[in-house]
Design a protein around this nucleic acid. Structure first.
Lengths: 368, 368
DNA sequence: ATGAAAGCGCTAACAA
DNA sequence: TTGTTAGCGCTTTCAT
């Protein structure tokens, strides 16, 4: 019972009266061991600089009392908080799962805590949050930031920053090279006989969307293809029906989607309208998110090494944080942009171009 | 150019030399406005208790210098950090997406930051992390904790805690009532003529797994069914093939899976072995995660209001944090457990029991 | 090797 | 209404 009690609240020190509890501080340890607080601090942090036996005694006491350092107090002095923010526009977008996992792992390994921030797809929100938290962060990783370029540059001057899938001058970034991958995808479609490819555009405020858009256009031109686009459509799977209808209306035999969510979202609607994938229409997604392999049919898509992107982003950030203070403050940290290749994963949503145009397509029958 | 410069680094004050920068503090504002720091503090935090014109002057200066309060320093005094940890066993498990979204939203609305912790499915890890971070947290929400009951109770004594899908005495919890839902699922299967139902068990260390297991067993008995189980299987979709093989070996005509990941994972293997769903085998999942509606065939599953669970968990936690300090420290906060109903969502993976036993099932052909 | 003292940025008594 | 003082927990000189 007594030991159970100890387990229940081991991290507290009884005051004189013994009726209230309070977190254990180095002062408590000092009192118990008969030294001064600064000695306790040394014994715990620079064990080499304190007598072996006192060190033992102090460390034992600390363990016994279940002492946990107050990181706020530490941060107040050092200015370093040990936490890194990972900023995403929407936590529920499966695209970010891998990113979050990648950053989480590396951050934990390095002893940092990960603060997850969801900006709800609003640049203003993003700026505001970051501004507010600046002081309690050692750095931030911005995934698909919605911030205008100048705001991003400005922010990078205030807090160590690494962006993911967003390339602006003077801020470190890791971007997944979907454009090159998209070239592969278009080549794949052309090889299957498609001559009329449409790009399904994502939201206007997405940097990736524009990068992919340009890539499809360039690749189409390279192969002498007709190129068009539909959209832009709002983020998310709910856009699926509208996307499907628009693609069908375009008359193209193949589409390249801004992302897998669009592609997956199209599928039910296409089925509903009697369009077979890939016999009547080939669909290419982008990112290879969770679900891309088990939707029906499984998606041909660009596999993005997003988890790796998270890892690299953390590595870049930590490298900067942990490098010795520059002698020459004028020397800006050399801008570094890492480009990660995306590969084409061919599954079952792409096939030979139909020899005849779609004819017996059922008309759109109301929203979804 | 000058104003651009201001935007680039507005949150710093030049020292005398003017060649280095440093975050703006209330002392800086005090100096600029000719008052003392405590007045600045008041002007910013209790505007009512300071002369209108000085207040204006101070607030203007704060805005001008782009002052941001140092939350560490504040925390040092108040003991409150404004951050809540959300602890999950695996960030990439889609089950948690909704939870994280729910907590994130409510937390942000209440002005708290969300610290996401991934325990990598290890109870030890979980305990260690929480222990280490205790001091920098105002509270924690534990999703599907792997901690033994006594450790959980002990922890609850040190830091305000709410568990999700884990019920232990004396700690507040919100649990999704999948057991009752499972009764519905079994009833549904019985109604379809199934007489031989197998439960696919999840990992041993999962509280939910045991709850669901018991529920299936109870329901089966209630309906005079034969009941068996296969497993336990390790978490994750990779278990899919093994699950499928085990279910097939059991000879049952229907299975209820620990979660959707198992169910989705089974599907390709079943197809590979020539087993049709639901004609030859009915499959029921649990949770209704992202993907359950677009896998093939779409899954009959228990829809868990997981986002709502996150919201409720936050509400419970904040209610406790923000309630005035109890006059009687002995009065433990009244234990409150919220039970959220899960509903049965019937899609296409369940159907009438086959009239004849499976015969021409292809043998398992190596892993996956 | 250890102790004494100062201070990080902020807030909260208490005084004036 | 404003200033003065003290102190949160910790680290870091500087003495000893």
């Amino acid at each position: 019972m007594a030991s159970a009690e100890q387990h229940a609240a081991p991290a507290t020190a009884a005051t004189d009266g013994g009726r209230r509890t309070r977190p254990v501080t180095i002062t408590d340890i000092a009192r118990v061991t008969g030294v001064v607080p600064s000695t306790v601090s040394r014994a715990l942090n620079k064990p080499g600089r304190v007598n072996a036996v006192t060190r033992e005694r102090i460390q034992a006491a600390a363990r016994e009392l279940n002492y946990v350092p107050n990181s706020q107090a530490r941060a107040l002095i050092s200015g370093r908080t040990g936490t890194i923010a990972v900023v995403v526009s929407d936590v529920t977008n499966p695209f970010y799962f891998g990113l979050i996992r990648g950053t989480q792992q590396r951050l934990k390994a390095a002893g940092y805590a990960q603060l997850l921030i969801d900006t709800e797809d609003s640049g203003e929100h993003e700026a505001e949050m970051l501004q507010k938290m600046r002081r309690s962060l050692d750095g931030a990783i911005l995934a698909a930031s919605r911030l205008p370029e100048r705001a991003l540059t400005a922010l990078a001057g205030e807090i160590p920053l690494v962006t993911v899938n967003r390339n602006v001058p003077r801020v470190q970034s890791v971007v997944i090279d979907t454009p090159t991958g998209i070239g592969l995808a278009v080549e794949h479609l052309v090889g299957l006989g498609h001559r009329d490819i449409v790009y399904v555009a994502g939201p206007e405020n997405s940097w990736s969307n524009h990068a992919r858009w340009r890539a499809v256009r360039a690749a189409a031109q390279r192969y002498g293809q007709r190129f068009r686009h539909v959209g832009p459509f709002p983020r998310g799977r709910r856009s699926g029906s509208a996307v499907a209808d628009a693609v069908l209306a375009s008359g193209a035999t193949a589409c390249v989607c801004f992302n897998d969510l669009f592609a997956i979202g199209m599928l039910p609607r296409l089925r509903q309208r009697g369009v077979r994938v890939p016999e009547d229409l080939s669909v290419v997604g982008c990112d290879d998110i969770f679900g891309a392999d088990f939707c029906h049919p499984p998606l041909t898509t660009l596999t993005a090494p997003i988890e790796q992107a998270g890892e690299v982003a953390v590595a870049m950030l930590l490298a900067r944080l942990e490098q010795p203070v520059t002698e020459h403050p004028g020397t800006a940290p050399s801008r570094r942009a890492v480009l990660l290749p995306a590969t084409l994963t061919v599954r079952e949503s792409t096939g030979p171009a139909p020899t005849t145009r779609l004819s017996a397509v059922r008309p759109p029958a109301g929203p979804s």
